[in-house]
Design a protein around this nucleic acid. Structure first.
Length: 577
RNA sequence: GGUCCCGUAGUGCAGUCUGGAGUGCACGCCGCCCUGUCAAGGCGGAGGUCGCGAGUUCAAAUCUCGUCGGGACCGCCA
């Protein structure tokens, strides 16, 4: 046994005991040849060791220190240190490893260090308290989720990493086949297809902490590879899936933060869009979109009279904060999200009555101005932002503006979970085929109340599809699946996929449904995203041991790398670079 | 593919707008001093391709163009 105790867990209770600690030199304070203090650090914390002889130990040397746990004198107690009541005296020191000085400080100051440097030396970055905490939060989240799923009779099943390419959706990573040169496996974007086959296979309830891979551009909340809690359950309705998933998320949240969140509220997609202008609303702040279309039903203002949907938000007290420069900036944002423009109005008081100051004020009637102020509850100093366009654009742009003017960092403030249900079955139209595009995926069950509109008004059909949102981040999504081949054929028909094409593209997936598929549905949520928010981080890289920067190129291992010509030849590959 | 921000010593920065010798700060590092510190303290020292390449200029960290790298975002992510 190399150590008898942990650095961070010594206390007055061990006073008088001979102990051996192991760890890294966190800091050394030298007072001459006869007195040196060493703060020895392991994952649990630090203990001060008092050295009374001349030794050469530097930062990050790895030591085994044996000594006597001794109560500190009253004037030398350090109240800022968990082990500040005691210290190790009469120490003998064994140097287990020497260390070069680290390229950046391994304390909080490294929070400001260029992330590329942290990633190049990630194994040093991981020694820091912040990263130690994040890795442990992640582990606790995983354990809590696994436990919650087991408790609910879900069965953990591993699905293949090497699977057929299915060109729908995200760009895939491909793996060349040696046995069949010129052919490729794909790495899973998600275990979607397999988990439904597990339902056909009678597993009844499946879960997996699954690695998913998508070759799309990286972001603060996106990596090439990420982890999902993936689940699927048979003989389940929407409510069953949401409830079962929620248990895992709540358990994870409680494990990470010590506080169990309240039951998660549910709103429909329609309501989310109307009130917040997004399908992933951040409920931590009050601002909501206000309907104004009727106010301007007979307006003389051209920009409004030509629009089918007019909505606004009130940036309370925002007049002073938003000068012309910032308003121009918001207008640019609005345009970049598809609006033709943005109308802003400052609420002023004139002769004791509220009035509006704006470049467009002169185009509005007194009745319209009064109604506008009243609808948006405008008070002196408020800033009103109005968008007029078709409904989707109006909502989407205002949703973006709402976030721009009021949204705190994702990691800040209370945790606001939200289920968004009844997503549309189809979103937008394929530019090539002119057919509706699936909102979630092609196997998503239409809302039974809307099934008869599949052929007549497909864009109005709601789906049994739902998202889980936390502080404005999409944590995950899922749906009830189609288990009836006849209904599946109808949905395919709307998508413009005939029987031949369906068999060609999804054959191995459709055949099983001929043999008795139970009604089933599922869900998957991102563990990196959940952990990041629960750990107070704004970036999932902070809760991933070895993440990649935005370029996707690993500064530590230098991957991706070129490979031997021999390896390529074996795979029947030749590069053209 | 696009927009915006950033790049100066091991690390974090100031200097860039308004061109004038690598002018500098803090931490770290090295050496010496120091018996109660805890981000110890004191003295001294080393450490620089101002990301890279062109251009303008008598003169470029500073201005221009290009390029590379990093970050945030749009597109993309069924």
């Amino acid at each position: 046994m190399m150590r008898t105790h942990l650095c961070g867990r010594l206390s007055a209770a061990e006073a008088g005991q001979e102990v051996t600690l192991t760890g890294w030199v966190n800091r050394r304070r030298e007072h001459g040849d006869h007195l040196t203090f060493i703060d020895l650090r392991d994952f649990s914390g630090v203990t001060q060791c008092v050295i009374n002889n001349d030794i050469d130990v530097r930062s990050e040397y790895v030591l085994a220190v044996s000594g006597t746990v001794t109560m500190r004198t009253e004037d030398t107690v350090n109240p800022d240190l968990a082990t500040g009541q005691i210290e190790l005296k009469d120490c003998t020191v064994e140097v287990l490893s020497k260390a070069e000085p680290p390229p950046f400080p391994l304390d909080d100051r490294a929070d400001g260090v260029d992330e590329l440097i942290r990633l190049r030396y990630r194994y040093l970055d991981l020694r820091r308290q912040r990263m130690q905490k994040n890795m442990r939060v992640r582990s606790a989240v995983n354990a809590a989720i696994r436990n919650a799923m087991e408790r609910q009779d879900f069965v953990e099943v591993e699905t293949p990493m090497l699977m057929p390419s299915t060109p729908e959706g995200a760009r895939e990573f491909l793996v060349p086949s040696r046995q069949r040169p010129g052919a490729f496996y794909a790495l899973p974007q998600s275990p979607q297809l397999y988990k439904q086959l597990l339902m056909v296979g009678g597993l009844d309830r499946y879960y997996q902490i699954a690695r998913c891979l998508r070759d799309e551009d990286l972001r603060a909340d996106r990596q090439y590879e990420f982890m999902q809690l993936d689940m699927e359950m048979s003989f389940a309705e929407v409510d069953d899936v949401l409830s079962a998933a929620e248990v895992g998320v709540m358990d994870a949240a409680e494990a990470a933060t010590g506080v169990r969140p309240d039951p998660v509220p549910r709103i429909t997609w329609q309501e989310a869009m109307e009130r917040f202008g997004t399908d992933k609303p951040d409920l931590r702040f009050e601002v909501e979109l206000v309907e104004l279309t009727d106010v301007f039903a007979s307006t003389g203002f051209k920009a409004f009279s030509s629009a089918s949907s007019i909505k606004g938000i009130n940036v309370v007290g925002g007049s002073a904060d938003y000068g012309r420069n910032k308003l121009d900036g918001l207008t640019d944002v609005a345009k970049s999200f598809g609006a033709k423009g943005m109308v802003w109005l400052r609420v002023k008081t004139e002769d004791g009555a509220p009035t509006l100051e704006s470049p467009v004020a002169k185009f509005l009637s007194e009745e319209e101005k009064t109604a506008l102020i009243s609808r948006l509850s405008g008070n002196e100093g408020d800033l009103l932002l109005i968008i007029a366009d078709e409904w989707m654009t109006t909502c989407g742009v205002l949703g973006e503006l709402r976030n721009r003017v009021a949204r705190p960092p994702v990691s800040q403030g209370p945790y606001k979970y939200l289920w968004v249900t009844d997503f549309p079955l189809f979103v937008g139209v394929d530019a090539v085929t002119g057919r509706p595009k699936p909102g979630h995926h092609a196997f998503c069950h239409p809302h039974p109340a809307d099934v008869d509109k599949l052929e007549t008004d497909p864009m109005a059909v709601r789906a049994w599809a739902y998202d889980l949102v936390l502080n404005g981040w999409e944590l995950g999504s899922g749906s009830i699946r189609i288990h009836d081949p006849a209904l599946q054929r109808r949905v395919f028909a709307v998508l413009g996929i005939d029987e031949d094409e369906a068999n060609r593209r999804f054959g191995f997936f459709l055949e099983p449904f001929r043999y008795g598929a139970p009604p089933h549905g599922g869900f998957a949520y991102g563990i990196d995203r959940l952990t990041a928010i629960l750990a107070g981080e704004e970036n999932i890289r902070e809760v991933i041991a070895f993440p990649k920067p935005q370029s996707g190129l690993d500064p530590m291992t230098d991957s991706p790398t070129e490979v031997d010509a021999k390896q390529l030849a074996e795979l029947g590959l030749r590069t053209t670079i």
